[in-house]
């Protein structure tokens, strides 16, 4: 077990390094012109522009920059933003923004998990019944229609209907409701549809038929056999989902003006703020890999039949 964990961690480290290094190199493919606005070009001559770029450190050889980044990382220094929030330490930018995304993310995970799993059980239990039909309709709408459209209407209509603020305020809890709901809706559908599917799959298994035919009450079959086995498949995704709530949501956060992480990556890539991009990519990769790893551990914990060492070949 111990050696398995070590091996997995080793593999995960390799993945993270490859991800970070490849993004790092990709970023260097972008033209440096992105560091200047039209007005800068009017104001600065070639000498000033080169000097500016040199001071940002973007003219150095990419490998030197990489070594510099890695060196800083060893010392716990993530560097400073260069164009989005010039000179602000990347760590403090993330420390300011992550809590918003985390809070909304975790709240929505709790809501979507409890309601979604409940809906999933309901749908599986009354397969082809009214609940199943309504649930499927909901999931279809949420998953098929581009989320931009329904998120926009939720903000516009429900805030108007209820008289709630259209944007998020830290000191007005009523303004937290709509973003939390918006965050939850897609996840809710995800949990419901997959739990339903896994439960329906399990229901057709021979052991379930056997349990039913030997006279076990339906509730016990449902709870003790079907749900439990179906959850084993689902549970492996939980840790990653929880960890990656830190990424926030670009759409929802920009609709409600939540100062979270959602738009940070896109604006940082666009403004070529390499230190921020690198840090975020590193952060997400670590959390993503860690989430998969924890998911496997959790799955083994929930289902004693699974021996971790066996599935090492299947990878993350």
């Amino acid at each position: 077990m111990g050696s398995y964990i070590l091996k997995r961690l080793g593999q995960s480290l390799v993945t993270v390094v490859i991800v970070v290094v490849s993004v790092f190199m990709l970023l260097r493919l972008m033209p440096n012109s992105g560091y200047f606005t039209r007005e800068d070009y009017v104001n600065m001559d070639q000498a000033a522009r080169t000097a500016y770029l040199r001071n940002l450190g973007v003219l150095d050889n990419p490998f030197v920059q990489l070594a510099h980044f890695a060196g800083g990382l060893m010392k716990g220094d993530l560097g400073r933003s260069i164009s989005l929030y010039p000179r602000s330490p990347v760590s403090s930018i993330i420390a300011e923004k992550a809590p918003y995304s985390l809070c909304f993310g975790l709240a929505s995970i709790i809501i979507s998990m409890s309601l979604g799993l409940g809906l999933g059980v309901l749908m599986a239990r009354h397969k082809d019944g009214f609940a199943d039909w309504m649930g499927t309709l909901y999931v279809t709408v949420v998953r098929a229609i581009p989320s931009l459209i329904w998120l926009f209407f939720i903000q516009l209509w429900i805030s108007g209907l209820m008289g709630w603020p259209m944007i998020f305020y830290l000191d007005r809890p009523v303004s937290w409701i709509l973003p939390t709901i918006s965050f939850s809706l897609a996840g809710l559908g995800w949990y419901a549809i997959w739990l339903r599917r896994f439960m329906v799959d399990e229901e057709n298994r021979d052991y379930v038929k056997f349990a039913t035919s030997k006279g076990l009450p339906r509730t016990r079959v449902m709870r003790g056999h079907i749900l439990r086995n179906a959850m084993v498949v689902l549970v492996q995704y939980f840790p990653q989902q929880i960890l990656l709530t830190i990424a926030g949501s670009l759409l929802i956060e920009s609709l409600y003006n939540i100062p979270g992480m959602g738009g940070l990556l896109v604006s940082a890539v666009r403004q070529q703020d390499n230190p921020i991009v690198q840090t975020i990519v590193l952060l997400y990769a670590v959390l993503g890999v860690l989430g998969v790893f924890l998911g496997d551990l959790l799955m083994a914990f929930v289902d004693p039949r699974i021996k971790l060492a066996d599935c090492s070949g299947k990878g993350a």
């Binding site: 490859i18 993004v23 972008m30 990424a247 890539v269 990519v281 997400y284 990769a285 993503g288």
Partner: peptide
């Protein structure tokens, strides 16, 4: 299996916005 699994892990962990913004450049 090994290299492909690694490729999968890597691609899966490169945030999509990075690719979406970089490609048009």
């Amino acid at each position: 299996d090994r290299p492909m699994t690694e490729l999968y892990n890597v691609l899966n962990n490169v945030p999509q916005p990075v690719i979406l913004v970089l490609l048009p450049y």
